[in-house]
């Protein structure tokens, strides 16, 4: 299939899976915001009363991530091989820190994802709340009471910020969903979305650490 073999096809797959992952990241953040309203436990209970939804979502995400990481690694290796000798003097004009380090910010996200799943998903919720529901809120507050843990979270979310500050606009270019007139708008919106995600995600561990949420 050309979609899987062509250089453009593989980038299309990366861009599509990337956009699916972005959709997840946005939804996950909206869900997490229930930490602030105090509805996290009922949100979690409701979500897990729908196993079919949860599991089809997880499978789609796993497929998207596998595709994304697989081609990300292959493409990066090919690109390195295509430029075997560096210039004595390099002066990039348009490439950014984000665009040049996609594989590293991506790997940081992958490592974080594993840690995050082990911490909150695989190990199960230890306690129960007053309504004898799994106390997800208590687990999260407990987890973020440690400074090193919060630092790991903020650093990983910074990596996500960089990954998306290039990735979002790049995905529109890759899929051809743009025009010269629309591109400045897409570029700006991409950075704003990345910043909002950064602010939203890092606020939760920071506020908990500072004792503002309990």
């Amino acid at each position: 299939m050309r979609l899987f073999s062509s250089t453009v096809g593989r980038k299309n797959l990366m861009a599509l899976s990337g956009q699916a992952l972005i959709a997840f990241v946005v939804m996950h953040l909206l869900g997490n915001f229930t930490v602030y309203s105090g509805a996290l436990n009922s949100y979690a209970e409701r979500l897990h009363s729908l196993p079919l939804l949860v599991w089809s979502f997880r499978l789609i995400m796993l497929a998207a991530l596998t595709l994304h990481v697989f081609y990300g690694a292959i493409i990066t290796l090919e690109n390195r091989a295509a430029k075997p000798q560096a210039y004595a003097v390099t002066k990039t004009q348009k490439a950014t820190f984000a665009s040049k380090n996609m594989i590293w910010t991506g790997s940081a996200i992958a490592a974080f994802l594993l840690y995050h799943l082990i911490q909150f998903t695989f190990s199960g919720v230890p306690g129960r709340d007053l309504f004898s529901r799994p106390d997800v809120f208590g687990m999260v507050v407990q987890g973020f009471s440690s400074l090193p843990v919060v630092l790991v979270y903020v650093a990983s979310i910074t990596a996500l910020f960089y990954h998306l500050s290039h990735g979002i606009q790049s995905s529109f270019q890759t899929l051809g969903l743009n025009s010269e007139a629309a591109m400045p708008f897409i570029m700006k919106s991409a950075v704003i979305i990345s910043l909002v995600l950064f602010g939203g995600y890092s606020s939760i561990p920071l506020f908990i650490l500072l004792g503002a949420v309990r």
């Binding site: 250089t7 593989r10 980038k11 493409i75 090919e78 690109n79 091989a81 295509a82 430029k83 990039t92 004009q93 348009k94 490439a95 950014t96 665009s99 040049k100 996609m102 290039h166 606009q169 790049s170 270019q173 890759t174």
Partner: peptide, 9 residues
């Protein structure tokens, strides 16, 4: 040649 990463260089 390599793949395009949209660096725009």
């Amino acid at each position: 040649f390599g793949n395009c990463s949209n660096h725009y260089e």
